[in-house]
């Protein structure tokens, strides 16, 4: 049975607290400008994105050093011993997943905490999410009619087929102040 580990992101539940992003740093001790996971805010809501461990990883195709690999559980990894820091992968990835590390002059990226997963633990980001906005699923065996393959702020998924699915934001009722246009 093949497996493709992926993220399930519930945009309705994400409160943008960035615990996932910092838990990633706490776990992986990434250098200063290196953000394996990034929480962003737009007028539509919050997004938490990391490497999406694509079914069709463009980073891997363009790498002249063949530094990428994909585990049988779907996790895409970069071998820092092979990376020369040419940054082609950074331009190829639509999700800003590969990050250039100015201290090592190499690229690094989210490895879905495979050392944790190999011990039966969840990735640090998923573990840190208190609202279950970020979950881990095996996309080969995941089906939910409520889930969608893309939401606001997600770049075109067609070429790369990212291993992430989403629950969109539901409609809500608001009563904003009606301002008198005096001043």
């Amino acid at each position: 049975m093949s497996k493709q580990l992926g993220f399930l992101f519930n945009a309705d539940h994400c409160i943008g607290c960035t615990a996932c992003e910092i838990a990633c740093r706490n776990e992986n001790h990434t250098n200063r400008n290196v953000r394996w996971r990034k929480v962003s805010k737009s007028s539509e809501g919050f997004l938490s994105l990391s490497c999406n461990h694509c079914n069709s990883p463009e980073c891997s195709r363009v790498c002249p050093e063949n530094a990428f690999m994909k585990r049988h559980d779907g996790i895409v990894l970069i071998d820092s011993n092979l990376c020369t820091g040419c940054r082609l992968c950074i331009t190829a990835c639509p999700y800003e997943a590969p990050q250039f590390d100015y201290e090592t002059n190499k690229v690094s990226k989210c490895q879905m905490c495979y050392p944790r997963q190999d011990q039966g633990l969840l990735p640090a980001c998923v573990d840190a999410c208190s609202t279950e906005a970020l979950q881990l699923v095996d996309l080969e065996n995941f089906y939910d009619p409520q889930a969608v393959s893309s939401i606001f702020g997600i770049p075109d998924i067609r070429i790369t087929q990212p291993s992430i699915v989403f629950y969109p934001i539901s409609e809500k009722k608001r009563h904003f102040l009606v301002e008198r246009s005096s001043n």
Binding site: I22, A128, S130
Partner: peptide, 25 residues
């Protein structure tokens, strides 16, 4: 090396906030 939430804590249930996870730094 690392900090983590305490799963024994009934309110936090093993989670920390971003500031909590930043204590290593």
């Amino acid at each position: 090396i690392k900090v983590a939430g305490d799963p024994m804590h009934g309110f936090t249930q093993g989670h920390l906030c971003a500031k909590g996870y930043a204590y290593t730094q």
